[in-house]
Write a protein that binds this DNA or RNA. Sequence first.
DNA 1: TGACTATATGATTATATACTCACATAATAA
DNA 2: TTATTATGTGAGTATATAATCATATAGTCA
Lengths: 109, 109
Amino acid sequence: MLTKKKQLLFEKQAEIAKAIAHPLRIAIVDFLKDGQQCVCDIAEYVGSERSNVSRHLSVMVNAGVLEYRKEGLKVIYRLRTPCILDFFACVTGVLKQQAKDNQKLLAAL
Amino acid sequence: MLTKKKQLLFEKQAEIAKAIAHPLRIAIVDFLKDGQQCVCDIAEYVGSERSNVSRHLSVMVNAGVLEYRKEGLKVIYRLRTPCILDFFACVTGVLKQQAKDNQKLLAAL
DNA sequence: TGACTATATGATTATATACTCACATAATAA
DNA sequence: TTATTATGTGAGTATATAATCATATAGTCA
């Protein structure tokens, strides 16, 4: 049976995972891996309304994935933990496995 | 600007992330890291209705995170890619960073 | 001061997700 | 065959999330 302690941990982990589990937010994280950026540049890169991007950014800040700093009129966002990028290695691994399995299936037809 | 190719990749990645982004599903993945299990045992472990667990399992199968095999009356689920466990290392990293920052904040008060 | 710019947020709507209950399906054993 | 057990799925409801528009806030510069 699941302990209360583990349950709490899983809830925290789910919160972080949810904060990344959106195409736009993944695009943002990918954009930020090369360095910090302001909301305006992020919005232009991902091709969405600034208000929408601002909301997505605050979701990730609340989850602890991003952090920000104000600089004049602009707000600059950056990755808070480099290990977030490991997440993509993991997910890419799943995708590669899927592709491999599809290839096997195709070859068997 | 975001290329169509990258956009497609991010959508796929988000799908996989979403498949894990739930406390119950994280509990399931954690349970399965030590070996394959049937729905009934998974449901008992996580403390939820079998019908509900069955739905969560199928979400993860569709995303390519889990795979299953039938054995008599039972359906046995297992992790499809061991690298899924790396995900937890990543998320735990974020949580550790959060805890560290909280400690700093506390010490500064 | 007022105009301008970047960002955040309230309100609304549309959509997606999770859960429950009831029922369907399928394998097994008597 | 019937009864039993494990699993999956349709339907309904409740809740969460995403996107948009309008508006608020706050820093900058003329």
